[in-house]
Design a protein around this nucleic acid. Structure first.
Lengths: 140, 140
DNA sequence: TTCATTACTTGATTGAATCAAGGAATATTG
DNA sequence: CAATATTCCTTGATTCAATCAAGTAATGAA
């Protein structure tokens, strides 16, 4: 379990709740991945493969080094969740795609990761809209 | 940089904004730590030492194995940011405390980690209260 | 006093992340 | 077209986080 990333002392209640949210979110994500014997990074990459993608595209989207993706995809491949096919249009490149088993595991993961759904579900539709608007403004 | 932990496809806008928030928060935390050549975990532990604490207390608070704390504290100690003093009341235990330099670095970290402050600051006091209430409800 | 428990450390292992360097294919440009 | 640069990815090395099993030393309880 990754350590929480948050200040202990916050100057406002809103900040404290933000920190709580991030912490609980992360733990829930990690727990859902762990249920399927996946690391968070593996679950993350697997989740980006609704469409087949090149290694470089994954790295750019996830904001990390390509060699990091090489590593993670290699483990997913060893687990039989992903394939690395040659790209017919560019023989330097590889196209990563989920296997049927990868699809299944990914589906089970999205089912197991209920946190965001559940949290949002505690709010009425109006409240959900308010939350969306407030967070958008806060993030702008 | 840790990979983002979020589903690509979300069933509601609120969920998507939650994911964005978590992602941006994490990256900001990591960036602030990196500015001071700290890992997120090191920044986290350093931040919990406003009061001196035992290793076990840190582990419990952070929800991880004691040996993980041993490791992280050892690195902080090597950096001169923390001391491990014997606990006079229990010679098995150690009390971890920030050094003056640790205080300074921790202060610089909390200054550098502006994300939550800035995000909340974009909202009016009323909006901050609304956000707090909504998130509390969502997290309940 | 014996025995269990607590507090922490050590050692081993796995995996994420980053960097430097390199191979192979493609793109550029002279 | 040939030479060069660039892109795409991999490999190897390193650092650190995290977990587990095992161990030491001190405390507490029977």
């Amino acid at each position: 379990m990754a350590l929480p990333n948050g200040p202990v002392t916050t100057s406002s209640e809103a900040e404290a709740v933000l920190f709580d949210l991030v912490d609980v979110y992360e733990r829930a994500y990690e727990a859902a991945a762990a249920e399927l014997s996946l690391s968070p990074a593996q679950a993350c990459v697997l989740g980006r493969l609704d469409e087949r993608r090149g290694m470089g595209a994954l790295a750019e989207e996830l904001g990390c080094d390509a060699s990091n993706i090489t590593q993670i995809v290699a483990r997913l491949e060893a687990l039989g969740l992903v394939t690395r096919e040659p790209n017919p249009r560019d023989r330097r490149a590889r196209l990563v795609a989920r296997t049927p088993r990868g699809d299944e595991i990914n589906h089970r993961f999205t089912t197991a990761f209920t946190f965001a759904r559940t949290a949002v579900g505690r709010l009425s539709p109006d409240e959900q809209d308010q939350l969306t608007a407030l967070l958008r403004k806060a993030l702008s």
